[in-house]
Design a protein around this nucleic acid. Structure first.
Lengths: 239, 239
DNA sequence: CTCGATCTTCAGCCATCTCACAGGAGATCC
DNA sequence: GGATCTCCTGTGAGATGGCTGAAGATCGAG
């Protein structure tokens, strides 16, 4: 998930009529080092695509003026965007069969509510594919801990670690921020669905699960920073 | 299905008057790394063939102006295309005996609705034949599991495994994505016909069939990644 | 048309996962 | 050392996801 120093930061267009969604997503993506532009309606999106030339469009299916599908149609009809990959957003209960047809070429979709963590994983996957660097793997390494985004496998040294989906997302987030302290509320915002309104104690619980599965196999990697949050880092040789 | 680094990516012309079909097919083929051009009528197709010089034409039999057969006739009459191989598309109930005759000269046909998976297999087969590397087989190997695209034979070690068509397509897709998790909806999109609108439970059922036929003969190859999808991978020796 | 093979749906079972609760352990401050 | 936080974790209820047997639908061959 590190930015290849060679390529300039990718441009992403986020299209949704709910402000809360575009705010949330665009903030997270900017934090990831991506260039973000926002549109709130289909026509604005089309304008932005032809001007901003994004490498990827995050597109709500339900827009006030056009559906996401119509946006796509007009794009290809008017010859703009030249087949930009699209990540559709849709409510779970509106999940349209039509979407299935679109997930074939490099595109993908997510149902709302999603976790920002997962959105970013998918965006990275699409960008990776579009760049054709399939070799450039989706593997994150911290010390003797390895996580493969594609196969969903996690290793500590030679040991395979079996994680539940939530544990996986949490570890993924911690590994992306290795060496940095992340607060419980940051974790909650990123790893859990954005409409989760439960108690922040879940984070503690899942940290505890991860420790049992990961820290029990070697030196401690997950550290509590009391009053601040958690930090995953390899045992320091020195410093 | 990996791109030979040596040869430039093949050019394919897709001819159909239904937008949904050309969108679907061209997106999928571009994702496979092929160059695609689209035509919506017979005359446009002829023009495109002489200009774009495709290595293969995917040709709907029923076009607004000409039939697919007429397109073919004019091609040879006007000496354009120099006998480009053709993959015909036709509705199942219009399946013409004339079509069966065409499968002799390196051509092939498919009835609508088809699965994208199968379309791509056939296109790859035609391109392979056209390049004369018939010997260079279409054999995929994952661990002790082998699948031959041409003969439709599957082996686990020395044992022959007998699969139904759907089981075969599913296994083929899993093997192409060996080591990667594929979601049930991805599978549904690629392996089932594009107009299939049943629920994802079919995938579970066919995974279950495959497991009975394949995993019962040795170590587990098909793994469930709960909440994400399935992954086919050889047993890990180490790492 | 009939039959058998294959495909699909339905429904129930089971395993797993998620998360709230609450008491205990440990850190921090005075 | 004691009071007071913060964090940890065992327990268990409820939700979810995945598996599979069985029955109905469909297709294709003879």
């Amino acid at each position: 998930m590190t930015n290849a120093a060679t390529s300039p930061s990718p441009r992403i267009l986020v299209v949704d009529d709910e402000r809360s969604i575009t705010d949330l997503v665009s903030m997270a993506l900017r934090y990831e080092g991506l260039q973000v532009e926002v549109a709130n309606a289909g026509r604005d999106a089309l304008e932005s695509i032809s001007r901003f030339r994004p490498q990827l469009v995050v597109l709500d299916v339900m827009l006030p003026d056009l559906t996401g599908f119509e946006v796509l149609e007009r794009m290809s009809r008017d010859g703009i965007g030249g087949r930009v990959p699209v990540l559709f957003l849709t409510a779970r209960d509106t999940l349209d069969d039509k979407l299935r047809g679109f997930t074939l070429g490099g595109d993908d979709y997510m149902t709302k509510p999603f976790s920002v963590e997962e959105l970013i994983v998918r965006i990275r996957a699409i960008l990776r594919r579009a760049n054709g660097d399939g070799a450039n793997s989706a593997r994150i390494v911290v010390g003797d801990l390895e996580l493969d985004e594609e196969s969903h496998e996690v290793y500590r040294g030679s040991a395979v670690i079996d994680l539940t989906p939530t544990e996986f997302k949490l570890l993924h987030y911690l590994m992306l921020n290795a060496g940095r302290v992340v607060s419980k509320s940051q974790i909650l915002d990123r790893v859990w669905n954005y409409d989760f309104d439960g108690n922040a104690n879940v984070v503690e619980i899942y940290i505890s699960y991860l420790r049992k599965k990961i820290d029990s196999l070697g030196s401690r990697l997950i550290h509590t920073v009391r009053g601040v949050g958690y930090s995953l880092r390899p045992p320091r040789q020195q410093q």
